[in-house]
């Protein structure tokens, strides 16, 4: 199903909350998305960066997966 702006805002809030004591992580995530927007990095590049940034946070990774196009997915380490 199609995600809306509200879903994106909600996800950003989730990231901000989880890293409340590490605001740099949230800022890094915003930077990754800005680089994608400016086409400095492509979808696999985003996946690579986000999987490193959110390592150890499976809920954030699974949430991020919902924004990826078909055929793309970050594997969660269990």
């Amino acid at each position: 199903q199609r995600l809306k702006v509200e879903d994106a805002l909600s996800y950003l809030d989730q990231v901000k909350l989880q890293f409340g004591n590490q605001p740099q992580v949230y800022n890094d995530f915003l930077d990754i998305m800005k680089e994608f927007k400016s086409q400095s990095i492509d979808t696999p590049g985003v996946i690579n960066r986000v999987s490193q940034l959110f390592k150890g946070h499976p809920d954030l990774i699974m949430g991020f997966n919902t924004f990826l196009p078909p055929g793309y997915k970050i594997e969660v380490q269990t």
Partner: peptide, 20 residues
């Protein structure tokens, strides 16, 4: 665009970053 939902997330992130 190949990843419309990711573009949407990026747009929202850019606006959020600009506002903060």
């Amino acid at each position: 665009l190949p990843a419309p939902q990711l573009v949407m997330l990026a747009n929202v992130a850019a606006v959020t970053a600009a506002e903060s």
